[in-house]
Simulated assay, not measured.
Amino acid sequence: MKITKKIEIPEEILISLRKSEDEFIAELKRTAAVRYYRERKLSLGQCAALAEMSEEEFIKYLASFDTSIFSFDDKEELLEDIKNA
């Protein structure tokens, strides 16, 4: 199920950004997806769907924000993961 809502964007914003309505909305979705991924609120797959990208495309997109799909809370966790590989 998809939810459709109408948002109002001042035309001068689109003109200043030199973006079409569709480009702006796509960028909003991608930006939200990156944020929710960084905050660990949504999974990689959910964020890719929100961004309307494949998981592979979204992983590459995350890299442009210096965000890795590999995250470890501390050095020991990383070493344990390497040991188990």
Rank of each mutant, 00 (worst) to 15 (best):
Q46F: 07
A26T: 12
T31Q: 04
L79M: 05
D66A: 03
E11K: 14
E39Q: 09
T67G: 04
R35Q: 09
A49R: 08
E23V: 03
S54C: 06
N84M: 09
Q46G: 10
I82Q: 08
A33H: 09
L42E: 02
S68D: 06
L28E: 12
I59F: 01
A32F: 06
R30T: 00
N84H: 11
L28I: 13
F58T: 07
A49H: 06
A63L: 12
D66P: 02
S54Q: 05
A33T: 12
A63M: 13
T31S: 06
A33L: 07
A49I: 09
I9L: 04
I9M: 03
S20N: 00
E57R: 05
S54A: 04
E8H: 11
A32I: 10
E21W: 09
E80L: 07
L50W: 08
K2Q: 10
S20V: 03
S68K: 06
K41C: 00
E76M: 15
N84R: 14
A85N: 07
G45T: 04
F24Q: 04
I3N: 06
A32Y: 06
P10Y: 07
A63D: 15
E8Y: 12
E39H: 05
M1V: 08
S64I: 01
E12F: 14
S20E: 05
A26E: 11
A49K: 12
I82A: 10
K2A: 15
V34R: 09
L62W: 05
T31G: 01
K5V: 13
L17R: 14
K83G: 14
